[in-house]
Design a protein around this nucleic acid. Sequence first.
RNA 1: GGGCGAAUAGCUCAGUCUGGUUCAGAGCGCCUGCCUUACACGCAGGAUGUCGGGGGUUCGAAUCCCUCUUCGCCCACCA
Length: 905
Amino acid sequence: MTAPLAPQYDPSDIEAPLYAWWQERGLFRPESVPGGGQPYVIMMPPPNVTAELHAGHGLNNTVQDVLVRFERMRGRRALWLPGTDHAGIATQNVVERLLAREGLTRFDLGREAFVERVWAYVQQTGARILEQLKAIGCSADWSRTYFTLDEDLSRAVREVFVRLYEDGLVYRGHYIINWCPRCLTALSNEEAEKEETDGHIWHLRYPLADGTGHVTVATTRPETMLGDTAVAVHPGDERYAGLLGRELRLPVVDRLVPIVGDEAVDPAFGSGAVKVTPAHDPTDFEIGKRHGLPSVDVMTPEARMSLAAPERFQGLDRYEARKRVVREFEELGLLEKVEPHRHAVGHCYRCDTVVEPRLSEQWFVRMEPLARPALARYRDGTLQFTPERRGDDYERWLVGIRDWCISRQLWWGHRIPVWYCKDEGCARVSVSRTDLQRCPGCGGAVRQDDDVLDTWFSSWLVPFSSLGWPERTADLATYYPGHTLVSAPEILFFWVARMIMSGLHFMGEAPYTRMYLHGTVRDTRHRKMSKSLGNGIDPLEVVRRYGADALRYSLVAGMSVGTDVILDPDDLETSFGPGRNFANKLWNAGRLILSNLEGPPRPLGGDSPAVVRREELTLADRWIIARCEATVREATDAYERFRLNEAAASVYRFIWSDLADWYIEQIKPRLYGDAPGGDVARAVAAQTFDVALRLLHPVMPFVTEALWRRFPDRPAEASISIAPWPRPDRRAEDAGALREFGLVQELVGAVRAIRAEYGVQPGQAVRAVVTGDGAARAALELEQATVARLARVSELVFGEPAERVGGHAVLSDGTAVFVPLGDAIDVERECGRLGAEVERLLRMVDGQEKKLANEQFVSRAPAEVVERERQKLAAWREQQVVLVDKRERLGCGAAGRRDGGADGR
RNA sequence: GGGCGAAUAGCUCAGUCUGGUUCAGAGCGCCUGCCUUACACGCAGGAUGUCGGGGGUUCGAAUCCCUCUUCGCCCACCA
């Protein structure tokens, strides 16, 4: 039906056209799934709109695609919903960097022009990442693609803000928040990444105002002392009992501050006295509130010293100021000591700048009421995490949850829907679903809040906002709630947990019940791949060189549940070569099978190869069918349990080790007409290969589709991506065939090993003598032709060998194999070999005898275990007898122990 | 400071939950021989491991318990 297939698989010829065809056929739309089963929904973690595909995206989306394709083939109406995130800070930073090249800042443009500029930028770069996801084969429903700043999603964001406000779950307040002095915005707790940092702790002396002594305080941030408004000690601390209420004279700033008593102070730490800087530390802020202390904010938004600091400090960077404060203390003789100190310091998750705790007015979401049901659903087992320990992380986070700071001092994002009346007498604060021009209270002029919302405030809604909420759309009714969430653990709190909370609150149901948190892609030194380290792998480069299937296979194969994927950026061949090789192997196996099908393969009686007339099947046929059946079970089970690597390995083993290495080799005589039963062999090969292709399709969609579509009589519109998932069939199970053909394989392997050992020329046939009445005999008789072909055995004889010189082996059922090799071999060497072998068996028998003589073992171990061990012993003894006999016939000399072991190779 | 994970062949990892027929495995790399009419991105054969160290439980431990070492992750307002 088609042109002959090239001997080497070239993914670049195949992938793009196939992908285009899938899209034309609308196969990624759930509506296209034949039969219209139950919906199955995965929400794609929306990549940043400015993102370039990296290995992490590759892994995350490959996993999702595997699951979606799996469920789609199982007849579910699978919807994988893609989108992009406007990524407030990240995107704004990108555009600001571009502006900087023109020597401009966003302030030069002004808000409106800047936002327009960002829109122009994101439209021009056009969410390139979505195209890149297509290149790796992602079967998302692109017709439903959303953007978190779309009109629809913006409406949802506003609706949610207003409702939460009305419910008292959104509030505005003056608190210490995490502030990035480079991005010039507040951050949530999650966005301030704590990193262990080596720093110092300075012990500073604050003299009592009356000159009668001093109090020593310790600090890791000496520059903040410029804003100190008190020193606190524990109220019960006897050392300071007499000092409570007295005043200290702050050095450097020359200000009087009180000594207060507060429970928050740990008397056991340092000197037991703490400097209190309400404007620059959360704990101090609380202490300040309790004691009515003033707040002195000594820093500008850029973390330079503000006008509230002494004049000589003003404008100094915080670290310059730190040095200067320390120096002045030293000069004053008030620096008691400096110690190295390792502690956790917050860093901006977008630019890695050290975050400054800063007092400011921000909007917050009260999280505790939202967290409660999210916690309950976890504890009652509704929500399941893979790996399970991620559930513990989830639980801990919810238990200790703090309010969410959602306002950002950015320009790119959802503007906060709050209007303030400009009339000072009215001063009404209005929260509204629609833009306000006038104050609903007094009708006066209003101004909208300048800030925008945290980008995660839109992404935590996508499971329903992307389906049309708050409208009651058909999509919403059909596809909410979804099922599986596939995510990197990094965004468990940012995104996953919050989606569960919003889903429960606004929809009454969690958006997913199964959360699969996969590992991180790292280099061989276990470092996270990143641009700055230059240790990244470009998935598109891999696609170009090895193909998307190879990329996907390698990612999946290297990934076991809950562990990281280690790849070597400097050696793509090692990582991705095997995937490419496997695709090529498939291609060639397909080439052979398909080119030998003169027409449609003879039906074996239905969907399953099991239903063929048994009497027509050879042992090898029954064996491959049974192996195929086992693979269907293994792979299906592994996919269901997110053990994608096991699924891939199972199919790999079947295709390469069973189908290609054994079955295809075995049937060649039948295929080429040298033996009868060609139609059965063709049918069995075609059917099992078809099944294998379907089992592998989720992981390697392109090559499997390319081959599957080339089966004769396949309708032009047929696609493997909606072909039915292979169903297990009891009738295909055949333990006897597995065991018996296994013995045939053992024999072939044994003869091959003997041939290699004695350097028999590849083209030269040998004879083989098989002794013993084990299960092997019947099987070998059935498969004589196989043995002849695959081991180049010209004659397979059953009985006792007459010859003396040759190679030997023993199969697992005790059957002895002898390959006469005439005078071609070195008798002395063979004696040595046999001697060593006898020696080894002797040791095994000794050990086994001891084991079985052990009263404890025999009485306590289960009977079947004991029996198994007995059989082992018997088999070894038998082998020993055979070998000793062989040595005698060779004339090696009686005592195997002495002359044998010495030369044992 | 709390919590958790990992350590198995030169490399990357299965196997550990449910001790004993995968128990010592796979892929890559390495060695030997083969261009055998699907595939040299291949075929056949082969070598390599105190299953991180130590202790314990058990008839029996890579697998269960304790401990130590080394990496890694998450959480954390002791300044």
